[in-house]
Design a protein around this nucleic acid. Structure first.
Length: 145
DNA sequence: GCCAACGTTGGC
DNA sequence: GCCAACGTTGGC
């Protein structure tokens, strides 16, 4: 799961311990939140749009999917005037801090790994901010730590 | 700052 | 339903 560190970083999550992962405005990600995730699932925290982009920590999914309140807040940058309270368009899940990696695993390093050729993060043009990770990819990446 | 690779919007 | 124009993401 990607976040820009100057907006919300792994250290922010370490401080907050638990946080709603709000601001998702992409239908594919919305559907993943709704259908694919389960409470207890683990996720990597990825710092995007920074130097260097890297996987920096591990967190867990700790809630079911529920409506993202920022879509109804006109003051929020994530406000969506077309969303309806009766039928909310955007969902989120709460995540909980688990740990920081012992060291950052940079995108560059991930791209150098033959075993991660098919990893979605490594594929060009991939702009999804939440990306599925297979169990073998997960274990391999943790082995790089 | 550039730009590739999307996703979204809206006219037709 | 098509597609041009526009907006966004995010690596570089």
């Amino acid at each position: 799961m990607k976040s820009e560190p100057d907006v919300y970083s792994i250290d922010d999550l370490k401080r907050d311990k638990r946080e709603p992962w709000d601001g998702i405005r992409n239908y594919q990600v919305r559907n993943m939140f709704r259908d694919q995730m389960q409470i207890g699932d683990l996720a990597f925290f990825y710092h995007s749009n920074c130097k260097p982009p890297a996987i920096v920590g591990v967190m867990s999914i700790v809630s079911e999917a529920y409506p993202d309140p920022t879509q109804f807040d006109p003051k929020s940058r994530y406000f969506d005037a077309k969303s309806d309270k009766e039928n909310p368009r955007w969902l989120l899940r709460d995540v909980k801090y688990k740990r920081k990696l012992k060291r950052e695993i940079t995108l560059q390093e991930l791209k150098e790994q033959k075993k991660l050729e098919n990893f979605r993060l490594n594929q060009r043009g991939n702009r999804l901010s939440v990306i599925p990770v297979t169990e073998s990819e997960w274990n391999f990446i943790l082995g790089l730590e």
